[in-house]
Design a protein around this nucleic acid. Structure first.
Length: 303
DNA sequence: AATCCGGGGTG
DNA sequence: CACCCAGGATT
């Protein structure tokens, strides 16, 4: 039985020469800073995250600082990164760290995944990149690279199966430092070379071991899932409402309805959803503002 | 397992 | 215009 090929050595050598100088990779970045970068990068390309991350970390360097912030400020600082509920969860995460962990980000996947907004990927990434832990990081890049190398398929399955996790975990080096380099390096390879659309196999350090390349790169342009159209979607309407509030402060319901471009019934439904999620609130004078508002008002109404 | 949740950049 | 992006929560 042949021993499995050494993927680590060529990968590590490649990574040493192609590692991007992302701001959160600078010496001295806290685990909290890495966590913030991971949340911001969920479904948002890292190139778009770099600047907002700098500004954010300068303003709120620690969980304590963010915990003290108002949710409206947090949402405004989030800007157009998308999926603003991530900002609310990061805010909640900071408050949980403050309240339950003495202001110190807990160490390890199990403790991290229990925090708001942190799932399997983000917990493993923070543990591996910033906490000296050996954790198996599975993001869209790593899953695509390993699916190609091992399974000769162009794209990974829709979600992480137990079987995939078990197989990919076997490739993770035992030594902690090597496991971090493996995670970062394979992720970087997926972002720069083994890309979803135009993979540069001629520049790939794993090309000799890649089952997909040897099979002739089958299924490269295949459609996987139905493209969920954005134009005219609830997401677009919600986005317009929040953008109006970010840029203009408080607004009347009428102003927001006009800006939303939705019919009245749909607008009311979406506004109700946004209120329930804490993305907006209603002031005493009946205007709509960004953020969850204060609990004081609820007491006033409760009387 | 399927859906929902933004927004911008790219071929 | 379709596809993609360092995913997570909810049902």
């Amino acid at each position: 039985m042949p021993s499995s090929p050494d993927l680590y050595s060529p990968l590590a050598a490649w990574f040493a020469n192609h590692r991007r100088a992302l701001p959160w990779r600078e010496e001295g970045t806290s685990a909290w800073g890495v966590l913030v970068s991971e949340i911001m990068s969920q479904q948002t390309p890292v190139a778009r995250v770099a600047e907002p991350w700098r500004t954010w970390m300068k303003r709120w360097p620690t969980p304590q600082a963010l915990a003290r912030a108002d949710s409206a400020e947090v949402l405004r600082a989030w800007g157009s990164l998308g999926y603003p509920r991530r900002a609310l969860r990061l805010h909640e995460c900071a408050r949980t760290v403050e309240r339950e962990h003495g202001g110190e980000l807990p160490v390890g996947v199990e403790a991290l995944v229990a925090l708001p907004g942190i799932g399997d990927y983000t917990a493993a990434a923070v543990a591996s990149f910033a906490q000296g832990q050996r954790a198996c990081v599975l993001d869209t890049n790593i899953r695509r690279v390993l699916t190609r190398v091992l399974d000769a398929k162009a794209a990974p399955s829709a979600h992480v199966t137990k079987r995939d996790r078990a197989r990919f975990e076997k490739l993770l080096p035992v030594e902690v430092e090597h496991s971090r380099i493996w995670n970062e390096g394979v992720m970087e390879l997926g972002a720069l070379v083994c890309r979803a659309r135009n993979p540069m196999c001629e520049a790939c350090p794993l090309s000799e071991h890649c089952a997909w390349l040897q099979a002739g790169r089958p299924g490269l342009g295949e459609r996987t899932t139905r493209p969920q159209s954005y134009e005219g979607s609830d997401r677009q309407i919600r986005g317009r409402i929040l953008k109006t509030l970010r840029e203009g402060g408080a607004a009347t319901v009428g102003t927001l309805e006009n800006a939303s471009g939705a019919d009245s019934e749909r607008f009311v439904r979406l506004l109700t959803d946004l209120l329930a999620e804490g993305l907006i609130s209603r002031t005493a004078s009946g205007e709509i503002t960004l953020g969850a508002g204060t609990h004081k008002e609820e007491h006033v109404h409760a009387r």
